[in-house]
Nucleic acid binder design. Structure first.
Lengths: 205, 205, 205, 205
DNA sequence: GATGAATGAGCTTTCATTCAT
DNA sequence: CATGAATGAAAGCTCATTCAT
């Protein structure tokens, strides 16, 4: 009985935590981290100010939770997608496809990642950079594999990986800010072509 | 006489403004916008707190001035470099070269552009975006020209331009955060090759 | 039947009240009144936060109950001891002996009385003072008796009584704070001698 | 010129600091440390809340300054008085006289020392205890001297010193709380007699 | 009765901005 | 013109108290 109670309680608590994170994501995406007061955040979540502190010990921890959660979400999806492929170029494309789809589906996440959090606080700065780095590293690993197979002309895989990720980042960011390019799907295909050519993939076949 | 006086006064005022902006650039690059109090800023500029307000009506205006100034600096240099060339690819390269050199020479500017300001405040957000956009637009214009000459296979020049700028941005940002790639000059050359290939330039010759 | 029920209920309630007071005494003695949150207090008593409020309408009332209880305990013990003696000096000594023993046995009480509560809140301030006053008054009454018997040279019994009580208070307080004098039993005997001499008792025999 | 300016400025600042301390002393004496909000304190000093923080980095530092200041005041006066005498008993009396007069003249100080600060915060608790200890130590030193001269029967000078100081403390405290004994001067004389007898001084002559 | 999550008033502290000197 | 002390709104956070379960 007591066990059930605890189980239900924990479930409830987890749900509340998610509710708060959801509200926080939205308002942070809209107003930014510094631009959001804990009072406003609580109002968005339709709870009292103090209640937030029952679930997150302070504002920074809340934000960190959000970033960590997004990190996990993103990497899990990408990992799952990658596992479906063996070929280096396919894995590379799968990663980008997954990443793209996640950001398109959850614009809130994209806004926080690309627009709101950078520059606010060195803690988050580093965290975000770490996430971006993770993507770069995966890309670089794929490129190294391809290079080992003699399928890439380029020597410095770091530069290529950064260029690869950076170009996607820029298109996404531009889209979030301007709503352009309108047909993101087509743009995305062009972008892939651009990068594959950049990597020297065109010469392969 | 009165005229001369005003002229001299304005000149003096402009000089003081520049002094403040210089100090502000440095301290903002180091501590960030939110992390810098007006008092600390004034101390850095070796003036009294209130004096800042004689030249800039508030903190935001000061920051805007900095961004605007950097904007002008950057675009002037790029423009000058571009004028030396006629060929589309040359102009494109000249732009990037100039841009790269400016950021390398003035890391303060780079830090403010890429690291400190984003995400802090929607006003600056927009301003920065506008600058990035300017670079993208010029790039796009160059690409359009090249396309008109039949030297580019790609249709959507916006995507290419974004990819182009984004890849540079990413390498620079990574360098600022991690100090990698250590040999930025070589990396830059590789990066240019990557993008030229991406644009389909390799097929031309 | 109903009567029995109520009786049992009241008994139960009284027991619970005592449990809470016991926990509160300990934690207040350790962390102080202001330093103890109702949540921490409830945890110490192994009940829910809200439950405390079923027995005490608020924090202040709880603290008052503690002080009152300590008051009753102390005075009851002293009264019992005093009844064993007839002679004024004997009664005086009996009072002090009892008081001393109670504080030594229940350091918690001593800490609350002498260290934690004073200065926190004027309500308790007054209550504590009232308790101290009670001791002073009894002492004074004894002294008055002795004076009436011509066994005391001093006229102002209030001053003597205050000096008497104050000297004990100081030794106890010092002991609680510093652990000195180490041999409290001997110190106590010296202290009694000091005060008896102070009262002019030495001249009697 | 600049020197003068700084001198005047420092003087002004010192004056303001004193003003704030004065207001703080009064309101702390009245409402206690915890019972006083920084806002209320600022209002009492007729300045804005933030202004307090120009002079004291936080509430605790302000309170510490007050306690330290009172400490210095008290000890300076006592020291000066003691220097006028050579004989142990005279020095002892001089100390007490001085202490008594200070507290009588500055009831605010007495209230903070004896009534408001104890129990509030272990930092102040310790500081106050240290002050009381200082008095006890001086007393003890005097007693040791007298003992060495064979003028004191008692062996444990710590107990005597504590009794001595404690009896004065109690009378003062009672007076502050109750306004009794009304004729404090006479009471004080009786108190001295009580303690001199307690020390065994009566037997000397 | 018992619970403990929820509340929100109130705290200390910061800092952009003002203005008397 | 320049100063920097003064301002006070607003922030993050705590915790005594309440109340739906």
């Amino acid at each position: 009985m007591a066990y059930r109670e605890t189980e239900r309680t924990q479930e409830k608590m987890a749900r509340k935590k998610r509710d708060i994170i959801k509200a926080a994501r939205e308002i942070f995406a809209e107003k930014g981290y510094q631009g959001t007061s804990m009072k406003a955040l609580a109002q968005k979540a339709k709870i009292a100010t103090g209640t937030v502190y029952l679930y997150f010990s302070n504002k920074e921890v809340l934000m960190s939770s959000i970033v960590d959660e997004m990190f996990r979400e993103l990497l899990t999806i990408i990992k799952n997608e990658r596992e479906k492929y063996c070929d280096g170029f396919d894995k590379l494309q799968a990663s980008m496809d997954a990443c793209f789809r996640v950001f398109m589906k959850e614009k809130t996440m994209a806004r926080i990642f690309l627009v709101q959090v950078p520059g606010v606080n060195s803690t988050f700065q580093k965290k975000l950079h770490q996430i971006e780095n993770e993507l770069v590293l995966w890309t670089q690993k794929d490129l190294e594999e391809l290079k080992a197979e003699g399928r890439l002309p380029e020597k410095d895989t770091l530069v290529s990986a950064l260029a690869f990720v950076g170009s996607f980042r820029q298109v996404l960011f531009h889209y979030l800010m301007e709503g352009e390019p309108q047909d993101l799907e087509t743009a995305y295909i062009d972008l892939k072509k651009y990068n594959l050519r950049g990597l020297g993939h065109g010469h392969e076949s």
